[in-house]
Design a protein around this nucleic acid. Structure first.
Lengths: 346, 346
DNA sequence: ACGCGATCCGAGAGCGCTCTCGCCCGTGGC
DNA sequence: GCCACGGGCGAGAGCGCTCTCGGATCGCGT
């Protein structure tokens, strides 16, 4: 390993430019009050020495780290088999790097991990946190709140009603579900069934609510509980076919379950969309395009949601610096619209 | 925002325990030479005050950050529609957190990003780097090398032959490809075609080599270039059907292309696997299980590969501390075995 | 010419930690 | 009973930076 040459310090740059450390610092941090001639000399020295500020030293005094934690709480590998996550991460990454912030990724699986994460956050290594895929009764939010870290959640937290001012970004699950069901009705289908997601997640609950908004007094047997997995979708579909053989449409809580449902329908000789129309949710590529037939589904702009989460957090961080109550102004919840993507299945 | 109470410092703990800062430091960092009685007192003080070391201050003197960068160089969204990445990340994450290292994620899209990343790495914010999805002629490795950062690559870099001692972890693409093709031959298929991946990636090249190892003097028209996408797979399949209508098996460079190929085959009325057997690569869930018919494919232990990458890097880091040449001993390349997963398509 | 702001810059303290060095004290050899 | 020795602990310097504060310098009005 090439023993790294010690990197130049502020001191070194100052010496070379014939000025004091303070002046170099001013130039480097872009504060004004330095005459152009000097500033130019400093900049040249920085260039020549290849000076890069030592972040540790800087943080030590500023107490800022320009780093935010992204926490993905996913006990199961399920969501991991899902490009969703990667997309959102990409959006976040773009926004953060645009503002010179680092992205510290924390993946958690179980409660032990959450304790560890709590300790980490309390350790003050990062300026804020972005949290995903919380399930009901997760201890994490409590830990984070105690650490006093500015946080933005991805997806509506279940305790939203309780505490106030919780910032989160979510897609319009309820509205998207309504659109999906209305589309089915518009196709002339009368007996529309719904396969729900795992009901310990707000996304599943909201989609179910959207379904109910439209199918006001639907036969309760038209709703079958799934768990967001293909296998769960298959099971739910079988149950539905069993209890309501006359159904002519299915709205699945996500594309994975829709794929499972398609398989069961085919197995039972029901043609899609002729006999039964199917709509999914997420527009999870490449699944949605690969099913037979390709899936009509509800799309959300995942990447943009990621960006927005980051943006909200960064804004909050700046607000905090200004030390006000930050209770007002900021819309603490942003709901993204969804769009129906028509393919062959409905 | 609750104005965070200033966190206790070493000084505070020392005062409370009635010892010097040095002693507290020793206890906290687990170095010996502190009598048990004192150590216990210090530990209690730490507990009572909820002391957590300030990482910035520590790094300032140790020049260690206990942070490593994970760089995913992916210009296209392609690989992002792919759970591969998430799995590997999870493996890395587990290993790193087990050793109290942070994971700093850097996602790059274009060359500009790479310049930025280069600067970041040179900035000495992290102790090492894990790099993925390099394409041929990427400037990144050069930048990293100049920054003198210990690095482990995910997937064989194309310049492996050139420079020496490049550490990387890859799966046995060539061997896996051979297994796939042999399986097809074992099924009694004689005219096996291959749809390659994007040939600017070593994984695609290696899989092609594996194919050729077995199909020593195959008709060159049995090889069609793809690009790892479903659409590319479709196009390649059409070309193959066109030039070699008599083919009875296809080995696709990944599952996405295999899915595309399946569609084209179905469209052309070829039954799978009866008329044409198909094998993919990656066992990319949930794709492989959702195709019609489910895909026989080659699996690799992604998560474990991630873990190993992290482990290799951390070991290198420790070795560096010990300031030796680290030229020997360490196997700088590790190839993971693959296994064939039999489903219905072949 | 002289004084008075305003402007620009440097000196120096201090962020919280690690680590070297040397002091102190207890022990053992003679 | 004295001195050498060694292990346990504290004092203090210093990591590289920011930021306050006061001094130097300049321009301007009179």
């Amino acid at each position: 390993m090439t023993d790294t040459v010690p990197r130049p310090t502020l001191e070194a740059v100052a010496a070379r430019a014939g000025v004091s450390r303070a002046t170099v610092s001013r130039v480097v941090n872009g504060s004004d009050g330095v005459r152009e001639r000097l500033a130019e000399r400093v900049r040249r020295a920085v260039e020549e020495l290849g000076y890069v500020p030592n972040q540790a030293a800087r943080s030590l005094v500023t107490k800022r780290h320009d780093a935010i934690a992204v926490i993905v709480a996913e006990p199961e590998t399920r969501v991991f088999a899902d490009p969703f996550f990667a997309r959102q991460l990409r959006g976040i990454s773009k926004e953060l790097t645009a503002h010179d912030n680092q992205l510290v990724l924390l993946l958690t699986e179980d409660r032990d991990d959450h304790a560890r994460v709590g300790r980490y956050l309390a350790g003050g290594h990062v300026d804020g946190a972005l949290v995903f895929s919380l399930h009901i009764d997760d201890p994490l939010p409590g830990l984070i709140q105690r650490a006093g870290l500015p946080t933005v959640y991805g997806g509506r937290p279940d305790w939203n009603g309780g505490r106030r001012g919780v910032a989160y970004v979510d897609s319009d699950n309820r509205g998207g579900a309504r659109d999906a069901v209305r589309h089915l009705l518009g196709l002339g289908r009368g007996r529309v069934a719904h396969i729900t997601g795992a009901l310990d997640q707000t996304a599943a609950l909201d989609r179910l609510d959207g379904f109910r908004d439209v199918m006001v007094d639907a036969d309760p047997r038209l709703v079958a509980e799934g768990d967001f997995t293909p296998a769960g979708g298959e099971r739910a579909m079988r149950r539905l076919l069993d209890s309501c053989p006359g159904l002519d449409a299915v709205f699945a809580g996500n594309d994975l379950m829709a794929a499972g449902a398609l398989r069961v329908l085919r197995e039972h000789g029901r043609r899609v969309p002729d006999d039964v129309a199917v709509v999914g949710f997420d527009d999870m590529l490449p699944i949605a395009e690969q099913t037979e037939p390709p899936l009509t589904t509800v799309r959300q702009d995942i990447e943009e949601m990621g960006r927005l989460m980051a943006r909200l957090l960064l804004r909050d961080l700046d607000g905090t610096t200004a030390s006000d109550e930050n209770a007002d102004g900021a819309p603490s919840a942003v709901i993204f619209p969804t769009t129906l993507v028509r393919r062959a299945s409905a």
